[in-house]
């Protein structure tokens, strides 16, 4: 059984000028131990998907329909009190900016201890020992001395390591990492990703890795979901999606990545911009920008259609041989 199943999930923001549909019937699943990459432009709904799964949508956002199942149990209708034992304990979260995710007034050791003691039955002494252990695991030097240190005494990269320790310390089955390296120096990004990959492999934790860095996805993820305007455009094994994109949007996304091997005068770009949630065109949301658009694309919204190991929401997929 899949660890997490998201089934036709719809997230809406009711407002004065009508309801905005921020996530429109997205479906995917994550298997135990699997790393699912989620890519897309800003505003495509990547982070929102993560927030919906841990039940921390900002009001007035709400799950309007669809289901989220964790190990077969529906959690999308859970109250806050019902979600609490799940957050941290079964689904961990890593946020984008490590400079703001840690409480500046509480020592990192205490933040670890309180997280573990909330979810696991641990004596103060055991929790403290484990806190030191976690700091060691995430590569904080002199962990035993640093356990009483405060967040401002760590660098950005070190703080993200602490955040990773906090996300994993109650031993969740799934970690949602929301752009964990975006706020970090490029030189540190690879280290953090490698650390996350190593720890989740060691502990058998699944990861939902939200990012807009295709390089990170290609290196770390087992499967990847490409999101566009609140919908999933394409989802499949990383190799297939990267090397043989089926959706024209994915193809455009891959074409816009600079490559060292062959120099090009100008990077290819996708003309136009992603539509705002108030103005999503009928049919396929990508149709105004698509080079392969058909009449049908303007009226009929494509469901996820299978091609080989990949699923793509497209009526006119990129042919296999037509890939650069």
């Amino acid at each position: 059984m899949a660890l997490l199943e998201v089934d036709r999930l719809v997230v809406e923001f009711p407002g004065r000028r009508g309801t905005l549909r921020a996530l429109d019937e997205i479906s995917f699943s994550i298997e135990p131990g699997e790393v699912l990459g989620v890519v897309g432009e800003s505003g495509a709904g990547k982070s929102l998907t993560g927030a919906a799964i841990i039940g921390l949508l900002e009001p007035p956002g709400r799950v309007a329909s669809g289901q989220i199942r964790l190990e077969g149990t529906r959690i999308d209708r859970f109250t806050d009190a019902q979600m609490r034992p799940i957050r941290g304990r079964r689904i961990g979260a890593i946020f984008q900016d490590p400079l703001t995710t840690l409480d500046p007034l509480v020592s990192v050791g205490k933040q670890l201890v309180e997280t573990m003691q909330t979810h696991l039955k641990l004596s103060d002494r055991d929790a403290r020992a484990r806190a030191v252990g976690w700091l060691e695991q995430v590569g904080i030097p002199a962990a035993a001395e640093r356990v009483g240190a405060y967040p401002h005494q760590f660098s950005g990269g070190m703080r993200q390591r602490v955040v990773i320790a906090l996300a994993l310390c109650a031993e969740p089955k799934l970690v949602i990492a929301d752009e964990p390296t975006t706020a970090l120096d490029v030189s540190i990004q690879a280290q953090i990703i490698a650390l996350l990959r190593r720890l989740t492999t060691d502990h058998g934790t699944s990861v939902m890795l939200v990012t807009h860095d295709m390089g990170v996805i290609a290196e770390t993820a087992d499967r990847v979901a490409v999101m566009y305007a609140g919908r999933i455009a394409e989802i499949g094994p990383v190799r297939d999606v990267v090397l043989h994109p089926s959706h024209p949007y994915t193809e455009g996304l891959m074409g816009s990545i600079p490559q060292l091997e062959h120099r090009v005068e100008r990077l290819r770009q996708i003309d136009g911009a992603m539509p705002r949630l108030t103005a999503i065109p009928p049919g396929c949301a990508f149709n105004p920008r698509c080079g392969r658009v058909l009449e049908r694309c303007r009226v009929d919204r494509p469901d996820l259609l299978a091609r080989g190991t990949t699923l793509a929401a497209c009526w006119n997929m990129v042919p296999m041989d037509d890939v650069t």
Binding site: A93, F95, T100, T101, L102
Partner: peptide, 16 residues
């Protein structure tokens, strides 16, 4: 703030 959101995401009680 983010650290309160993160505290929620860690499953801490409202009291904590």
């Amino acid at each position: 703030s983010d650290y309160i959101k993160f505290a929620r995401a860690r499953g801490l009680t409202p009291r904590a």
